[in-house]
């Protein structure tokens, strides 16, 4: 673990270069903007709810510092799949997974692996904004950090500002950090949830239809934030919105179920441009051109 984990935001307004402890305990004088995030790889993945098989035999390579979009009709297993990527699937009653998911070559379903560590490395933003209602905006952002080790107040302040800037929320909330998280609009709440995820410095960020409950303006803001974020993180996003996928992603996976009750499959996976312009399979073409779904 000799990587320099330095994703600290350097704010242009504030010229003071922020310092941050790397995992080896050294301090970096200057924090570079960019960071090579870790890649993921999925092999032969099946997921179940009790006896029901929700997705079958998924294989996929998730490139580092890219946005990978997952699209497909409802009920085809996209959300189930993204939840298997940080072991959230098993939180649901009866949730069970077969196959392997590698983070930087290490199977997150390996024998000695702790799901807590997995989720710290692979953060998740959910469909519905879910800030902690009893916490302030500030406390929401540092909620994950406070779990780990003691941070100095100044350190926390820097991280809060950095995370909120990255999620493009800072300017809107900088004067009311002690208000309740619930006082924000839906779009702001969702960006608060993104900031909360960024604050623990994951390698990968999973976004499960983050804009589905939001208005177009908020959706735009989140997309813009995503383009910035991929400089530091590997991003996987489930979306219903075809424009969003084609605009913001580098790779696209199309999920499909052949029949009701069948498990969902990864029907086609390629560069986004290829999926949207010359897909190989007919169903993909039908879907991206809006002929169904």
């Amino acid at each position: 673990m000799e990587r320099n984990k330095t994703k600290e935001q350097t704010s242009k307004e504030k010229a003071t270069p922020k310092k941050q402890e790397s995992q080896t305990g050294q301090r970096q004088a200057e924090a570079p903007m960019e960071h090579t995030a870790q890649s993921m790889e999925v092999n032969g993945l099946n997921a179940y709810y009790g006896g029901f098989k929700a997705i079958t035999d998924i294989g996929m390579k998730i490139a580092p510092n890219k946005v990978t979009a997952l699209i497909g009709p409802s009920g085809c297993g996209k959300s189930t799949f993204i939840r298997t990527l940080n072991r959230m699937h098993e939180v649901a009653r009866g949730g069970r997974v077969e196959g392997e998911v590698l983070l930087d070559g290490e199977d997150i379903y390996g024998k000695n692996v702790d799901p807590v560590q997995v989720r710290r490395k692979i953060g998740m933003v959910f469909q519905k904004p879910n800030p902690f209602p009893t916490m302030t905006i500030y406390d929401n952002v540092v909620a994950g950090l406070k779990l780990q080790k003691r941070h100095k107040k100044g350190e926390l302040d820097d991280i809060v500002e950095g995370s909120l800037r990255q999620s493009a929320l800072w300017d809107e909330v900088k004067n009311k950090l002690n208000d309740s998280g619930m006082s924000l609009s839906g779009g702001q709440q969702q960006r608060l949830c993104i900031a909360r995820t960024l604050a623990v410095e994951p390698e990968v960020i999973l976004l499960d239809e983050p804009a589905s409950a939001l208005d177009p303006m908020s959706t735009m803001k989140i997309e813009d934030a995503m383009l910035e974020l991929k400089k530091r993180y590997t991003i996987v996003i489930v979306t219903h919105n075809m424009q969003q996928a084609s605009r913001a992603s580098d790779y696209t996976g199309f999920f499909f179920i052949e029949d009701m009750g069948e498990p969902g499959q990864l029907w086609e996976f390629a560069e986004t441009e290829k999926i949207f312009t010359r897909p190989e399979r007919k169903e993909t073409e039908d879907y991206v051109t809006g002929r169904f779904g």
Binding site: R3, Q38, D114, Q117, K121, K149
Partner: peptide, 14 residues
């Protein structure tokens, strides 16, 4: 490069 990064107990706090 980061084998074992997902196992628990890396630090005292963990």
């Amino acid at each position: 490069m980061a084998a074992g990064q997902l196992e628990s107990g890396a630090t005292a706090s963990d």
